[in-house]
């Protein structure tokens, strides 16, 4: 088997962690695996790895109850993201399977892209993650077209109008899924719309936290 990211052969290691249960097959070689940094401790609300207590951003109430991020957005992750999202190497999503939790609760709502963006990129990265989690994506939201968040400053992001629109009335505990949590604006805006339309609670799950 070859590493899905660097194409070097993978030598699966057998140790106490995977010797008695099947475990998730890793599609990454050891070196690439070590390139990612797993977040073990962070802000209890948004997983910001730079804080061990509630971070300043999370001191205000918001519609987003909490967020879980799995990996630190280091240089290696940035490179990965560039290949996956901007150069459209969709298959790379398989390399994330080892980092995902076995079980997460809530109905999965992938953060939508605008139609223009989907057209441009060919896929929605949040939906790809949802599928990898083996959850049914629920299309509860729509997004109007605006400039990429990545190209705005923090103030611009916060001041900008909410791009999300509700599709239908919703119920229950929801899990909002996206690829990266930067300032949390996108997640919070989407959560606010969902909350207004009947969600009991909204939590977040993202692959990376910058």
């Amino acid at each position: 088997m070859k590493c899905v990211y660097c194409f070097q052969p993978v030598h699966p290691k057998t140790d106490w962690r995977n010797a008695f249960l099947p475990g998730r097959p890793s599609r990454l070689c050891e070196e690439c695996m070590n390139g990612f940094e797993v977040i073990t401790e962070g802000c209890p609300r948004c997983c910001n790895p730079r804080y061990s207590e509630t971070c300043p951003d999370c001191r205000h109430d918001s519609a987003l109850l909490s967020n879980t991020s799995l990996l630190f957005y280091n240089d290696f992750a940035k490179e990965w993201m560039a290949r996956f999202k901007y150069r459209g190497d969709y298959e790379l999503i398989a390399s994330m399977s080892v980092f995902l939790p076995y079980f997460v609760r809530g109905k999965a709502v992938p953060v939508p892209l605008s139609d223009v963006r989907v057209e441009e990129r060919g896929f929605n990265q949040a939906e790809a993650i949802t599928e990898l989690l083996m959850k049914r994506p629920r299309p509860y939201l729509k997004r109007s077209h605006s400039e990429k968040q990545a190209k705005k400053s923090k103030q611009e992001r916060e001041r900008g109008a909410n791009p999300f629109l509700p599709v239908q009335q919703v119920r229950g505990n929801l899990l909002l899924i996206d690829d990266i949590y930067t300032t949390g604006t996108t997640m919070k805006q989407a959560a606010a719309v969902l909350k207004e339309n009947g969600a009991d609670s909204v939590r977040g799950l993202t692959l990376f936290h910058s």
């Binding site: 088997m1 030598h11 699966p12 290691k13 057998t14 010797a19 008695f20």
Partner: peptide, 10 residues
């Protein structure tokens, strides 16, 4: 199957 042949043995 690489790295998994001990499962059949068990």
């Amino acid at each position: 199957m690489k790295g998994k042949w001990h499962f059949p043995l068990l």
